[in-house]
Computed example of a mutant assay.
Amino acid sequence: MDFNNILFEQSGNIAYITINRPTKLNALNKATISELNDAFSAAEEIEDIKVIILTGSGEKAFVAGADISEFANFSVEEGQQLAAEGQAKLFDLVANFPKPVIAAVNGFALGGGLELAMAAHFRIASDNAKMGLPEVSLGVIPGYGGTQRLPQLVGKGRAMEMIMTAGMIDAKQALEYHLVNHVTSPEELIPLAEKIAGKILNNSMVAVAAAIKAVNASYDNTVNGFEVEVEEFGKAFGTEDFKEGTSAFLNKRKANFPGK
């Protein structure tokens, strides 16, 4: 697949989606969001792809925010449309993606960049990473899910402080805040993501997709998360993966999940 602003590569069962606008510190613009939508949509359709590693090109930035020049002169209606379309096209798509998405945060993850990382199922970071939501310093607020996902991850008080001060935290603080799961050197960032992906790939990807749905349901006020868990748990009993997993366990052998 050919893109102008991102790179899409596959190695084995892992897809690598890389935001590639190094001269703009990988800032998100409409074209990049559209290409990311296309890339994730393609990754969902490619059966061999089981895990996504999302990162930015170079070591300076994962995504250093949105491309402000695109919306500096927007009206109220245009601003609302920008947020709504962006959330639907990319951020909610990533959050509810049926295959695991690991954000490998290298360098700056600011504004829309941190919002994109937070939409991923979990995050790891290089030790030079810096994260923040600086929108109020521009007279606006986070519009791609930042006011919702940050409190879920770090708690209301810390989220309020980060948003209201428009400040940045480093990788060590992000780890203490539980915003990221692991911190490593820039050189080891992708290898660590691959190591974690490998552990995920040992399991039933059908069950992993169901677990993603059930966990996300706990953050959706329109559904009962416990009911979703019960439903997905029951559905698992009808899968070939369940039959293989239980058979392998009882016969003390490694499972070979068919993915059905």
Rank of each mutant, 00 (worst) to 15 (best):
N37K: 13
D127F: 12
N5E: 01
M131F: 14
K243F: 06
F74L: 06
Q10D: 00
N106V: 12
Y144R: 07
F249E: 10
I19T: 08
L133Y: 11
L25V: 04
N73L: 14
N256Q: 06
A120D: 02
S185E: 05
I141E: 05
R253C: 01
V228E: 03
V76L: 12
P142N: 06
V215T: 07
L90F: 14
I6G: 00
N29R: 12
E44F: 15
G167N: 14
G238A: 12
F237D: 01
F40A: 07
V136I: 15
G111P: 02
K195N: 07
M131C: 09
P191V: 11
I212T: 04
A174M: 11
K50N: 06
I169Q: 05
F8P: 00
A166F: 10
T239Q: 04
T55L: 09
V228D: 01
D241H: 09
G167V: 08
A31K: 14
N221H: 07
N256D: 06
G155H: 12
K213R: 13
I124V: 13
A174Y: 11
V206Q: 07
E229N: 01
Q80A: 13
P98L: 07
D241L: 08
L189R: 07
D67G: 04
A217D: 03
E161A: 13
I52F: 15
N4V: 02
I169W: 09
A159D: 05
A166H: 13
G58W: 15
S185V: 06
L110W: 02
I17C: 02
E240W: 04
I53Y: 12
A207Q: 14
P22H: 08
A129H: 07
I17D: 01
I212S: 06
L28C: 02
V76H: 14
V154T: 09
Q80W: 15
L82C: 09
S137F: 06
N13M: 01
H182A: 11
A61E: 11
T147Q: 10
S75D: 13
K260R: 03
V140H: 03
G143A: 12
T18K: 02
I212P: 06
E176C: 07
A171F: 13
V215S: 05
V76F: 15
A159W: 08
E244L: 04
V76R: 14
V223H: 06
R149G: 03
K24T: 07
V94I: 15
L175S: 09
E9P: 00
K254I: 08
I19K: 01
D127H: 11
K156S: 08
A217N: 04
E194W: 12
Q152L: 12
S204R: 11
M1V: 02
H182S: 07
E115W: 02
